[in-house]
Amino acid sequence: MPTEEQPWTTTPITEELLRGAVELERTERGVLPHRLPARALAQCADAQLALAESQPAGVRLAFRTAATAVELDTVPVKRVYAGAPPRPDGVYDLLVDGRPAGQATSYGGDTLTIDLGAGTAESTAGPVCTSRFTGLPGGDKDVEIWLPHNETTELLALRTDAPVLPAPERGRKVWLHHGSSISQGSDAASPTATWPARAAALGGVELINLGLGGSALLDPFTARALRDIPADLISLKLGINLVNADLLRLRAFGPAVHGFLDTVREGHPETPLLVVSPLLCPIHEDTPGPTGFDLDAIATGEVAFLATGDPAERAYGKLTLTAVREELARIVAQRRADDPNLHYLDGRELYGEADHAELPLPDRLHPDTAAHLRIGERFAELVFAAGPFAGAPAGRGA
């Protein structure tokens, strides 16, 4: 710990110290990492999207230092849903030279109280959270602090008992991934336990996670963001949110997927691009959305979801996960004639019936930590080790 002879060193938090963020907003108190650019948010006044993209899934501070003690001041945003049980606090994961070396739970911060029935939200200011990590090994080392994947986090100050430099580039491939709340990390226990983080660690790649809870909706501004972000490998996990929101019919879904892929390809014409269909989710396999809260479960202190559509409505073009998978497989097969670097993966290869029997979805929609880790390990095996991302050249995302 710092002494009078060796006081704390405060290092400004800048873009050079952050990985996984798309933009950094300067605030009155500090900086706020964003996973979509401001120009994208200006095109959609949706509170759900704004909340999801400001939650720093995959965002981490990365620096080199001889420090044995680190402090990080933040202002987390705690979400409280009226009538629902409390959500778990966010978690900070500390890695030293790529290995787990500590964890801290967020506290304090601002509170966002959401009343889903009334459609209102109220924000209340709260105290600063200071996360402390001590007893780090001496000598120069690479340190990463992964920010909570499910909690908006404003960064105020980084203090150490030795100087800090940005972590050196390791020449690793940059993997850009887009998906839904499962890709963002719901309901993993910590940021490095989300399936993309696990897959990235096993694959030896740098992760940029554009998993957007409730907001993987084939929005053109998201496609343009993906187009403009340098990357060596890109994956798009599509479909579940479109069913959740009952947003599109089959007639519009196919052209929307083509348009999304066309836009991404404008910036990445030859980059290995993987389309992943939804994981198994029994409530929506053959029943359309929208998805609703199970109010009976909430009354008993649990959170669970229901499919509220009618299976007969698939005949009229309503989307189910079965329909989404069929259409995505068809579109990729059609486009591969002109795009050999485009690939398809059925999400049930990552989490299927046998997995659901062993590790069921606790809320009927999102995997738990054990399932996240399994999905990440499967992705690394099927995609990085021997699949479409194996042997892809690095350099474009550097």
Rank of each mutant, 00 (worst) to 15 (best):
E206K: 03
D228W: 07
S235R: 10
A216M: 14
P196S: 11
A252I: 00
I229M: 12
L242F: 04
K237T: 06
I208K: 01
A225D: 10
L207P: 01
A201N: 01
L236E: 11
G213W: 02
D232V: 09
L242R: 01
G239F: 07
L207I: 03
N241M: 05
F253G: 02
G214H: 04
D246V: 06
V243Y: 05
A225L: 03
L218P: 06
A252V: 00
N244R: 09
L202D: 13
A231F: 11
A252L: 11
L238W: 07
R249F: 09
E206D: 15
I229T: 14
L217Q: 13
L242V: 08
D219F: 13
P196R: 06
A225S: 15
F253T: 00
A197L: 05
L236T: 11
L226C: 05
A225Y: 02
N244V: 12
I240F: 11
L242G: 10
E206H: 10
A201K: 09
G213F: 05
A223G: 12
R227Y: 10
W195P: 04
E206Y: 02
P230K: 08
A200H: 09
L236N: 10
F221P: 00
A245F: 00
D246R: 09
L242D: 09
P220I: 04
G213I: 01
A199R: 03
L238V: 12
A245C: 03
G203Y: 05
